[in-house]
Design a protein around this nucleic acid. Structure first.
Length: 423
RNA sequence: GGAAGCGUGCCGGAGUGGUUGAACGGGGCAGUCUUGAAAACUGCUAUACCCGCAAGGGUAUCGGAGGUUCGAAUCCUCCCGCUUCCGCCA
């Protein structure tokens, strides 16, 4: 959500943002509805003022005069009721349009239609060369008995899975790796709810437009697609002081995505699943672009350092405008090397949102002068499993079919090499 | 799931239909007094939107959404949340 005053004053910027993001949005339509809404609002407020004056006069009038004064007020009231009805309709129309206004991409974001236009900004790590025929993560997991996909889909349906044995231990180790690292950076740890009310989803910009991506329940609750949703909801309708910022959270939560529209992609294994676990970084900071940029770089660096500690090769790309979600100002994806596909695959997503979410969620702070502002929000993946297990297993595989455990995870896994189970 | 109760401003806490944006107390800010501080005293102390160059004016807001009424914090309905008791449960 953007400020309507900003939109009124900068319709061209909004129009350009929609074009860049390849989003179908008609600014003129919004401005027309806005103008109508303001006109009717003024009528309504004038009538209400007359009602208020009239009602007070009734209270002070002698009993004999009240009757016809009330009759007059009833006439105004009928008129008012009609205009209020019209205002209600316009407000709703206005609100629905406002939900669809895209946030303005940062000038540093490259223009482009899709993720094919994302620009690599740096790489880290040496791409491993295997002088034996390598296995993909599916083969490794099967041979090492780290997962069961047949029974996974029997129980959970398409894209369902069980993790087993060291697959479980590696998951816990990765979560703990992320948690330890982020807590050392001063982040407050949270285990946040995956079952959320609609408000947080609207507030984070997932609803109303991405409903098809979410799982609902019979109780008007939804399954969160990321911990970001509940962590942002955590502070909705709160007002902070500038001194309390930045608020830094590292949140653990299961995440659920219907993956609608991706039926042909990654149909096997653990790359794209409906149910996964995310350890997510979330920051609220004061409303200055430079402050957001600074934290964005920090959040991104933290995730890179966690990958470096695992010695996994990755690259960072800046998402092109056409691949930028409509609430985001700027986004980096971190893509980790997947040897079997000989390419980098997205494992992290780091976003600047400015006040897009906090305006919807009503998260504000008072600056040193006492003025109120909507905070800025940012988020980035710390670790998402099981996807990262694929990169981990493939990069760490050995000729004999075993998989080494990264140094950084050994204390949590308990072994240094994962070998086939004895029959 | 059943029963009862509760939800007021930064905090505590009045207020059951008529200048109530809301008594009173606390806190905060400014001032008087003081060498300084405390105390005491005085004043100020919400947010959003609309009109306006501004000064200023208007509208709304007492958990949320509707309703009754000329008029609602106060009455009615639904929803959300909290508390206590019972049931169930990891």
């Amino acid at each position: 959500m953007l400020d309507i005053r900003f939109i009124r004053e900068n319709p061209d910027l909004v129009r350009e943002a929609a074009r860049k993001k390849r989003v179908d949005f008609d600014v003129n339509q919004l401005l027309e509805v806005d103008a109508k809404r303001v006109a009717v609002l003024q009528d309504v407020e004038k009538l209400r003022a007359r009602m208020n004056v009239g009602s007070e006069a009734v209270a002070n009038a002698p009993e004999t005069e009240r009757k016809h004064m009330i009759t007059d007020l009833r006439t105004i009231k009928t008129d008012l009721a009609q205009k209020e009805e019209r205002l209600k309709e316009l407000n709703e129309e206005w609100r629905q349009l406002m939900f669809r206004v895209p946030n303005i991409p940062d000038p540093s974001v490259p223009d482009g239609d899709s993720d094919a236009d994302n620009q690599e900004i740096r790489r880290w790590g040496d791409i491993p060369h295997f002088d034996f025929s390598l296995k993909n993560h599916l083969e490794l997991m099967r041979d090492l008995d780290l997962a069961d996909f047949e029974r996974g889909s029997k129980v959970s349906g398409f894209r369902g899975y069980f993790l087993k044995n060291e697959g479980v231990l590696l998951s816990f180790a990765l979560w703990r790796h992320a948690l330890d690292y982020m807590m050392a950076k001063g982040f407050t740890s949270l285990i946040s709810p995956a079952l959320v009310k609609e408000e947080s989803l609207v507030g984070t910009g997932k609803l109303p437009q991405f409903r098809e991506e979410l799982y609902g329940t019979d109780d008007k609750l939804y399954l969160a697609a990321t911990a970001e949703i509940s962590v942002m909801g955590y502070h909705m309708n709160e007002t902070f002081t500038e001194a309390e910022f930045p608020k830094k959270y590292i949140a653990f939560s299961p995440s659920y995505r219907r993956e609608a529209g991706s039926y042909g992609k990654d149909t096997q294994g653990i790359i794209r699943v409906h149910e996964f676990v995310k350890v997510e970084q979330v920051i609220l900071c004061k409303a200055e672009h430079q402050e957001s940029v600074r934290w964005h770089e920090e959040l991104t660096r933290y995730s890179e350092e966690m990958l470096q500690a695992l010695n996994l090769p990755y690259r960072v790309v800046i998402n092109a405008t056409g691949d930028l979600p409509f609430g985001q100002v700027k986004m980096y994806d971190i893509e980790t090397w997947l040897p079997s596909e000989e390419k980098y695959r997205e494992t992290h997503s780091s976003s600047i949102l400015h006040d897009f979410q906090t305006r919807r969620l009503n998260i504000r702070y008072r600056d040193k002068e006492g003025a109120l502002h909507f905070a800025h929000s940012l988020n980035n993946t710390a670790i998402a499993t099981p996807r990262l297990l694929a990169m981990l297993l493939e990069n760490y595989q050995q000729e004999d079919g075993s998989v080494r455990v990264p140094e950084a995870l050994r204390q949590h896994v308990g072994v240094s090499v994962i070998t086939p189970k004895k029959a």
